[in-house]
Amino acid sequence: MKVIIDNKEIIANEGETVLEAAKRAGLKIPTLCHHPRLSNYGGCRVCVVEVGGMNRLITSCTTPVSDGMVVTTDSPKIRETRKTLLELILSDHPNDCMTCDKTGECALQDLAYEYGANVKENPYDGAMRQYPTEDKNQFIIRDFSKCILCAKCTRVCDEVRAVGAIDIMKRGFYAKVATSFDGVLDCEFCGNCVDVCPVGSLTEKLAKGKGRTWETGKVDTICGYCGVGCGITLHIKDNTVIKVTPTEKESVNNGALCVKGKFAYDFINNKDRLTRPLIKKDDKFVEASWDEAIDYTVKRLKEIKEKYGSNSIGGLSSARCTNEENYIFQKFIRAGIGTNNVDHCARY
C-alpha cells in the first residue's frame, strides 16, 4: 500500500506502523518508550504525528499504516506538543546530568536538547516523586526519581526474558516500577532492563563513576563464557573494561545477555588471572612460551601413549568452548590419541 509521509510517497507493508514505515524511508521520529524488540506501548507520546483528516495527534509507534494515509512528522504543533511533553517529564526529573552515568547516551537529554526544552525555568515545576534509590542488590542501581515510566524494563523482563521480576505499581503520578511487594531486586540479573532503559534510572553498579560515556572506547566482540557466542560490546577506558552491553549489531543473542556475559567481566584485569602457560619444574610452576608449552605437551603425550597405551589417556573438554572447538577436540582424542576416553561437562 502507498502512504505519504512528509510529502514522500512510500510503499508500506500491511500491518506495519507509521513509525516503522517512516524509519524505512529514512525519516527520524523521536521516541522514548518504543523498542523494536518489544510490544508497542504508546506511553511517552513523543512520537506523535499528524494524520490528514484527524483532529487529534496520533502516536506513530502504535498506529498501523492504511492505504492513502497522509502523515506529517514535523510541524509547529507537533514540535510544541513534543516540547511540552519533554518539559512535563523534566519537571519531575532530578536533572542532575552533570553527575549522571547516563549522560551522553541518554535519550531524554538528547531530545531535551533537540527540542529546546526549558529546564531552568520549567513552566510546569511542581511536586516530584520522592522514592529512595535501591542499590542493595548486587548489580543494578535503581534510581526511581529518574524513571520516565517508559516500561521498557518491565516489557523486556516479561516479553523477552519471560521472568516478570518487575512491573508497574501504584497509579498516576506516583506510579513506580517495582518488584513484588516493592522489595530489593532479586532476579536472574541478566541486566537487560539496564540495557533498554533510555535514561539513568537503571545503571550498572560496577560501572558507576568509572568513566563518562564519551571517554570510553567501544569494542565489539563475542562473549567467551559459552558456546552460544553472544555479541557483546566492551566499553573500555584506560585499557580496562568498565562495562559490557549487548552489541547493537546483528548477533545471535539479538540484544539479550545473561548475568555472566553482562556482569562477570572483572576477571579480565584480575591479577590472579593466568595470561601465559606455566610448566612445573622442580615442583614449581614456571612461566613458559606457548611454543615451549605445546612442544612439552606433545612430547609428554607421546611418551605416555608409547609406554602405557592409548587408553591410559583421556580428554575432558568444556561447554564454554564452541561446537567447532569441541568437535576438533574429540577428533584429536579419538583419531590422534586413539582412545574413546573423551567427554565434556555437557556430554558429547
Binding site: 507520546r45 512535563l88 510546569y124 511542581g126 516500561a151 501504584k170 497509579r171
Partner: peptide, 21 residues
C-alpha cells in the same frame, strides 16, 4: 482524574498533576 490516572502516558500522568497543582 489525577488520582485515577493509570500513569501510563506522560500528558495524563504528569499533565493532570500539574493542572491540579
Amino acid at each position: 482524574s489525577t488520582d485515577e490516572s493509570c500513569g501510563k502516558c506522560v500528558p495524563c500522568r504528569i499533565g493532570t498533576k500539574r493542572l491540579l497543582e
